[in-house]
């Protein structure tokens, strides 16, 4: 389980998060939707401390992320993160991107890490691209390697920050298919996305963010089908 309680975050004088609460149960998939600037990416990044919340509480399992005694590197090993811009390590092959963490942090042998990595590459449909350098991969392939890299740490939860926003349209589907498979495997996930059809299909709950708070949250059929809040209605009417 991961949860956030009354999370505040400012950049300079700009208050981006104004007290956000969210509890994600084990195996649950929550999609964060909302306009640009609503704070959804910042909020997502608070869950693994890429942004440090100014105030509030983030709990990963039973570890309080913001407590001074918490080793944030240890917590991050338990939460996978997938970025909009993929952020594959450009100097390493697909396989080495995936094995770097397991070898250095999980202390696996190289052989063991590579066996696991090849299984993950097969899972994301890239078994034959293990030796490829990132610059030789398409955007969709890069993102699938990035997902495999995050899964290689055997995380308890996964965070996705607009995983298909930087992709050419024809590559969106291959990435969504992989994410769907991971979700079906029972992974706890928080996904920031603009793919409303995907959110509706995959999410257990959808959270609509507006002006630094979660404005409305509920099952996808309710949020998309019968939104209660006027802001949610306005947002959805613009993009659907």
């Amino acid at each position: 389980m991961i949860s956030a309680k009354d999370v505040h975050k400012s950049f300079g004088s700009l208050e981006v998060l104004k007290g956000v609460d969210l509890t994600v149960s084990p195996g649950e998939v929550v999609c964060l939707i909302g306009a640009s600037g609503s704070g959804k990416t910042t909020f997502l990044r608070c869950f693994n401390g890429l942004e440090m919340a100014d105030k509030g509480e983030i709990i990963i399992g039973d570890t309080p992320l913001l407590a001074p005694a918490t080793d944030i590197n240890k917590v991050r090993q338990r939460i996978g993160m997938v970025f909009q811009q993929f952020n594959l390590f450009n100097h390493l092959s697909a396989l080495d991107n995936i094995t770097l963490g397991p070898i250095r942090l999980r202390r696996l042998s190289k052989a063991q890490a590579e066996t696991e990595a090849r299984d993950l590459l097969a899972l994301v449909g890239l078994a034959d691209r293990a030796e490829a350098m990132p610059r030789m991969l398409s955007g969709g392939q890069k993102q699938r390697v990035a997902i495999a890299r995050a899964l290689a740490m055997k995380p308890e939860a996964m965070l996705f920050d607009e995983p298909t926003s930087a992709l050419d349209p024809e590559m969106v589907r291959e990435v969504l298919d992989v994410i769907r498979n991971v979700a079906r495997g029972g992974m706890t996930m928080v996904i920031v996305t603009h793919e409303m059809g995907f959110a509706r299909e995959i999410a257990d709950r959808v959270a609509f963010m507006h002006a630094g708070t979660i404005h409305e949250i509920g099952p996808p059929d309710q949020v998309f089908g019968a939104p209660r809040e006027r802001r949610t209605q306005e947002f959805l009417s613009k993009i659907l």
Partner: peptide
């Protein structure tokens, strides 16, 4: 080197 490279490393759990 792109800032995202540092973030990717940190998000895996590297210091």
């Amino acid at each position: 080197v792109d800032r995202g490279q540092m973030e990717a490393g940190r998000s895996i759990g590297f210091g």
